[in-house]
Amino acid sequence: MPELMVNDYDRAKQFYRDVLGFALCFERTEDRFGYFDRGGAQIMLLERPHGSAALPPVTDSRLHFQIEVDQLEPLLDRLAGAGHCLHKPPYTARYRGNDCVYVQREFFVRDLDGYLLRFFQHQAEEPLV
């Protein structure tokens, strides 16, 4: 599971918990560290060392984290309610597997430190043509 370095642990914790729907499994407040889970997708957040310069926002899109959810709509509603813009709005994607095509609805969003997250909802499996 990834451990993401963040500028403000409390702010990141609130965003991951209250907006993205992750549950806080445990934290070490003295280390500004938390371990989170959302339906089996696990992530760790760690605040940059005190006294070090603020980290620039992550802007590279070559890496993203894919997270499966049962339903996209509640998450999209929470993001909109928080005034948080999407990096790429919801769309239907088709990905070829070994013996079928996986159909899913997905969107991309950046967290408060710029990390790119892809949330997806599985919709169907279609035969290869």
Rank of each mutant, 00 (worst) to 15 (best):
G81A: 10
R17N: 11
L20M: 09
D18R: 12
Y102L: 13
Y115I: 00
L128N: 10
D77W: 06
H64V: 02
H64T: 08
Y115G: 02
R48K: 15
P74N: 10
V58E: 10
T92G: 11
V103P: 02
M5K: 11
G51Y: 00
H64M: 13
D113Y: 01
Q66M: 09
Q14P: 03
A41E: 01
C25D: 13
F33L: 11
A82P: 02
Q66G: 15
A53C: 04
Y16H: 07
E126Y: 05
L46C: 11
V69R: 04
D8R: 14
Y35Q: 04
G97V: 10
V69P: 02
F120P: 00
Q123F: 00
Q104T: 06
F107R: 05
S61G: 09
L116I: 09
D111V: 06
Y16D: 03
R38L: 14
M1H: 15
R96S: 14
E125V: 09
R28N: 14
M1F: 11
L72F: 03
Y16S: 06
D113P: 05
R11V: 09
L76D: 02
V129L: 15
D8H: 13
H50S: 15
R62Y: 07
P56G: 07
Q66I: 00
A41I: 00
A41W: 01
Q14Y: 12
N7L: 01
C100I: 00
L117N: 09
R96I: 09
F36G: 04
M5R: 13
V58K: 11
N98F: 10
Q123I: 09
D31V: 12
L75C: 02
L20K: 09
N7H: 01
Q71D: 15
V69A: 05
A124N: 13
P74R: 11
L24T: 09
Y9T: 07
D77I: 10
E47P: 04
I67S: 06
P74W: 01
D37H: 07
K88A: 13
E27G: 12
Q71T: 15
F26W: 13
R94G: 03
A23K: 12
M44I: 05
Y9C: 05
P127Y: 04
K88F: 07
Q121F: 05
R96V: 12
D18N: 12
Y95D: 04
E68T: 14
F36I: 04
P57S: 08
D113M: 06
R62D: 08
G34H: 03
F65A: 10
N7K: 02
H122G: 12
N98E: 13
A93W: 05
F33R: 09
G40T: 02
M44V: 08
L72P: 03
S52H: 13
C100F: 10
L75W: 01
M5W: 04
L79K: 06
N7F: 00
Y35H: 15
F65G: 01
R48N: 06
K13S: 09
G21C: 04
D8C: 02
R118M: 13
D37I: 00
L112P: 07
Y115S: 00
